[in-house]
Design a protein around this nucleic acid. Sequence first.
RNA 1: GACUCGGUAGCUCAGCCGGUAGAGCAACGGCCUUUUAAGCCGUGGGUCCUGGGUUCGAAUCCCAGCCGGGUCACCA
Length: 514
Amino acid sequence: MRKLSDQEIERRKSLEALKEMGIDPYPPEGWQLSHTSEEIKAQFRQGAELGEVSLAGRIMARRIMGKASFVVLQDHRGKIQLYVARDILCPGEDKTLYNEVFKKYLDIGDIIGVRGEVFATRTGETTVRVKELKLLAKSLRPLPIVKVDAEGKVHDAFTDPELRYRQRYVDLIVNPHVREIFIRRAKIIASIRKYFDSRGWLEVETPILQPVYGGASARPFITHHHALDIDLYLRISNELYLKRLLVGGYEGVYEIGKMFRNEGMDRTHNPEFTLLEMYVAYRDYHWMMEMVEDLLEYVTTQTTGSTTISYGGHTIDFKGPYKRMSMSEAIRQYSGYDIRSMRTEELDQACRQLGIAPEKGWTRGKYIDELFEATVQPHLIQPTYITDYPIELTPLAKKHRSEEGLVERFELFVAGKELANAYTELNDPIDQRQRLEEQARQRAAGDEEAMQLDEDFLRALEYGMPPTAGLGLGIDRLTMLLTDQHAIQEVLLFPQMKPERPHPKSETEHANNQ
RNA sequence: GACUCGGUAGCUCAGCCGGUAGAGCAACGGCCUUUUAAGCCGUGGGUCCUGGGUUCGAAUCCCAGCCGGGUCACCA
């Protein structure tokens, strides 16, 4: 058995004592709720006659003063103070409920239901005078105790990232601002759905397990299907499936879902992350830029109340229209290099001067991409569209209608980070085949991240896909921006972690010895 | 992957010029019927991340490993 701490032993003793008194520490029947803590406080402040209220939540603090006590109860909307007085809780002769159950056997962390009237204390705090109290779930582990003083200063904050991410449930209990992040995340996603649905675009689900992975450049996770005896890949992108649906005749489709990329992890990368992908027929990337402006204005207003947000000390305004620059203009403006007239050797030299070490096999497009990342990207704080990318980097976008060697693509940059990526989609099946065959050659030459040739996707395109604008937008990054968080782990409920090493004296070991 | 910082009580941390551990909160016992970082008196609680090494003696010094943070690299 895992060695229990003194506090855990104490709580288990209380649990047994309660059972002996005939109190079920985990009763099945629940508790009728009349209000949330937030509703009680708001309505009482406005002078409402609340009468008796009934609420439930977790004990977060206890201040016992003999025959009366104050309790801080936390529910999903906030905290409220309870006043538990012996003779109000136990009007008769039997004071067991107060003296024994409440004072001795309840702890911080226990979940209780209470009923009583609302009043204001001497100091004016809205408080529930408890007439009825019931244990709903006993907590066997002590919580980290976070205290906030009169000036609002937080003491002993629970901040260790390892503990917070591994035990997110504890983080959510004791850190209200963390709960808020995930409420906002849900609002962001809900508002995107609302916006798309109102335009008649169809939300779809496409396979996560794919026999051929494509639509992006990344190493996949591989798994195995036993009945079929084939390897399957966790999708790195759903792009090729959504395009099949445009071939099928839907004129607007979108999917919000997890993608999986088997690459490094850091504060901006998690192996699984949430991407919005959407495709609309008979549109091009110019239209898409306007749509994204409109969408982001809507989402920011719906979730934050304004188009203006604060991110890492910058004030960022999502009100459109956003600045637009072609990639070559942007590089000229920020670095002085005119890549359009530069030969590959000159690009190589320019990169070396900037401290970038080129690798053999780099295409012209790769050099340009590197130059861009080093010289331009960090400066793009306000939402900015960078347009017209080198063709080599973008096998699924349509060739530029007037510029040789470029494709009709834009990326949206905010706070120096890529937020969205969009194309006028390539719907010429012959061109698409050539470009994917080029990718296949790069794979054969050892580029693990070049795309696989998806014959069924090409077959679909051969039936004819309408001209289409497509968009990918990182939901995690958008959430980071709208919550002023700088690590992806802060906007994922359960970020990927290395497993905890089982302790030598583990619980399972004990089980085996029993 | 490289470098770097960290891992000590349930939590937040101190101790780290080597002499086998401390504080606050939490817990336990007591007092207290409007407190709010409640207060007062008393008490208990530790594989000092793991494994080696140096030493009469290691939380402390050295080596290796594990986990996490940061920076860089890789990576649309």
